[in-house]
Simulated scan of single mutants.
Amino acid sequence: MFLANGVSMKEVQEWLDHSDYSTTANTYSHLEFSSKINSAATMNKAIKI
């Protein structure tokens, strides 16, 4: 829920008290798929201009 609402992966790491960033990223990075879709759409708009 944090990631989906704009909280950074680093902040999630701190909230979950993971000592290593990669632990958080490896566990939760799949949840950021929607942000990949949004950034791809943004890039697509920029290229078309």
Rank of each mutant, 00 (worst) to 15 (best):
Thr23Tyr: 01
Ala25Phe: 01
Phe2His: 07
Thr23Pro: 05
Ala41Tyr: 08
Ile49Asn: 14
Met1Phe: 14
Asn5Trp: 07
Val7Ala: 03
Ser39Tyr: 08
Phe2Glu: 02
Thr27Arg: 06
Tyr28His: 06
Ala25Glu: 04
Phe33Ala: 13
Ser22Thr: 05
Ile49Val: 15
Thr27Glu: 04
Glu14Pro: 04
Tyr21Pro: 01
Ala4Pro: 03
Glu11Arg: 15
Lys48Ala: 10
Ser29Trp: 11
Asp17Ser: 09
Lys45Ala: 11
Ile47Gln: 02
Ile37Pro: 12
Glu14Gly: 02
Tyr28Cys: 07
Thr27Phe: 02
Lys10Glu: 01
Glu32Ala: 07
Leu3Pro: 00
Ser29Glu: 04
Gly6Arg: 01
Glu14Val: 13
Asp20Ser: 08
Thr23Gln: 08
Gly6Asp: 07
Gln13Arg: 00
Thr27Lys: 11
Tyr28Gln: 04
Ala41Ser: 12
Ser29Thr: 05
Lys48Thr: 07
His18Ser: 06
Ile49Ala: 14
Ala40Cys: 15
Asn38Thr: 15
Asn26Ala: 06
Leu31Cys: 05
Ala46Gly: 06
Ile37His: 02
Asn5Met: 14
Thr42Gln: 07
Phe2Pro: 08
His30Ala: 14
Ser22Gln: 09
Lys10Gln: 08
Tyr28Phe: 10
Ser22Gly: 04
Ala46Leu: 14
Gln13Trp: 09
Gly6Cys: 07
Ser22Arg: 12
Ser35Met: 14
Leu31Lys: 03
Lys45Ile: 10
Gly6Glu: 04
Ser29Lys: 07
Leu31Val: 12
Asn44Ala: 13
Trp15Phe: 08
Ser29Ala: 04
Ala4Asn: 12
Met43Arg: 14
Lys45Asp: 04
Ser8Leu: 02
Thr27Ala: 09
Glu14Phe: 05
Asn38Gln: 14
Asp17Lys: 05
Asn5Tyr: 12
Asp17Tyr: 08
Phe2Gln: 03
Ala46Ile: 12
Ser22Lys: 12
Ile49Tyr: 15
Leu16Asp: 07
Ala46Val: 01
Asn44His: 13
Glu14Trp: 07
Glu14Cys: 01
Lys36Glu: 11
Val7Gly: 00
Lys45Leu: 12
Ser29Val: 10
Glu14Ser: 00
Thr42Cys: 03
Ala46Trp: 09
Ser8Phe: 03
Lys10Pro: 03
Val7Glu: 04
Ser19Cys: 03
Phe33Lys: 12
Ala46Gln: 02
Leu31Phe: 08
Glu14Asn: 03
Ala25Tyr: 02
Ser22Leu: 06
Glu14Arg: 07
Lys48Tyr: 11
Ile37Glu: 02
Tyr21Leu: 09
Asp17His: 10
Thr42Met: 11
Ser29Leu: 01
Ser8Asn: 09
Ala25Val: 11
Ser22Cys: 06
Ser8Ala: 00
Ala41Ile: 11
Lys45Tyr: 13
Lys36Trp: 05
